[in-house]
């Protein structure tokens, strides 16, 4: 019973995000390419396309809202794209909306975080700052090198994804990743059938027990011209995302030339000395908008105490 209910609520959630996402201005023709046609429910709904047109769609065609590539196509990149992320450390105040949005998008348990916010301090005398950390989607990914079955792979568009239908759960990638970006499904997440036809490495859902998961840069959203959910969720516009090939990154409200932003703000790679060539760039936490202490407000006292104690010293 419990499980059934859970599933139902999830579907409902799916549906809601779908409509909200479609209704929002911005984005591309989701409706036009409505996915695999399921049984028509007869019930139609009216949706707004990004350029302000109204479209009538069958409700059954709207859920699930995400239409990732499957199988071999999910192993190829989106043609001629090179996705990059730029994280502006000067703006982060640990609002944790990126975390919660990501958890919603990827149906994660509340403890599992694919994007984490660390409290960092480079050395004892320097200032602490908040440090959101997704997967770096490295160009020389140590995790991909060591995977024995090619379950985790590098695409031409720069993304490193995990195929949970191929993963054997050896966890070698988790030991190989120097940035602790990977999360293991230690117990059955109870998200439906094993061979779910909706599963795609581009959405990473439903999760499968005994396999590895991590931040995927929401490539199915990118296929629709939409930003990853951590980017749209951030209230302070900390996270910029874009295509390095077209040299534009955006946080949803502001757009910059990627090269100019990195040049002007002295963007850098975290632990560049490891030679992993990340596709995530950081803008240094100078002239910060918030005192780092503000970041404790979003935490429970217990959490705050923990963060203060376990402050991470960047090496």
């Amino acid at each position: 019973m419990e499980k059934g209910k859970k599933k139902q609520s999830r579907r409902k959630f799916f549906f809601k995000t779908a409509t909200a996402a479609i209704g929002a201005i911005g984005g591309a023709g989701l409706i036009a390419q409505s996915c695999e046609t399921k049984k028509e429910s007869g019930e139609t709904m009216t949706l707004l396309s990004p350029d302000g047109k109204l479209v009538e769609v069958d409700k059954a065609n709207v859920a699930p809202a995400r239409m990732p590539a499957h199988g071999k196509n999910a192993r190829k990149g989106i043609p001629n794209k090179k996705f990059v992320m730029v994280i502006d450390l000067a703006r982060c105040r640990n609002a944790r909306k990126c975390v919660s949005n990501c958890q919603k998008m990827h149906q994660l348990e509340p403890e599992d975080e694919w994007i984490k916010v660390f409290l960092m301090q480079d050395s004892d005398d320097t200032a602490p700052y908040w440090f959101p950390k997704p997967c770096f989607h490295c160009n020389q990914p140590p995790c991909v090198k060591v995977c024995p079955v090619g379950a985790t792979y590098k695409r031409t568009d720069g993304l490193v994804l995990v195929d949970n239908e191929r993963c054997i759960g050896c966890k070698f990638c988790m030991t190989a990743c120097p940035y602790s970006s990977r999360v293991f499904q230690w117990k059955d997440p109870g998200q439906g059938k094993e061979d779910d036809e909706n599963y795609s490495p581009e959405t990473s859902v439903p999760h499968k027990v005994g396999t590895v998961g991590k931040c995927d840069f929401c490539p199915d959203m990118a296929r629709m011209g939409k930003l990853p959910t951590c980017v749209t969720g951030c209230p302070n516009g900390v996270i910029f995302f874009g295509d390095k090939n077209e040299d534009i990154v955006t946080n949803g409200t502001e757009s910059f030339r990627f090269s100019e932003l990195i040049y002007d703000r002295a963007g850098y790679h975290f632990m560049a000395e490891l030679g992993t060539e990340p596709n995530v760039y950081y803008l240094p936490p100078v002239d910060r908008l918030f005192d780092y202490k503000k970041g404790f407000k979003t935490l429970t006292p217990e959490q705050a105490e923990f963060y203060k104690k376990s402050i991470v010293h960047k090496h």
């Binding site: 794209k81 939409k226 874009g242 295509d243 534009i248 955006t250 949803g252 757009s255 910059f256 030339r257």
Partner: peptide
């Protein structure tokens, strides 16, 4: 603007 994948660059 220049049309980008995710946004318009002014």
């Amino acid at each position: 603007y220049v049309q980008g994948t995710f946004s318009l660059y002014n």
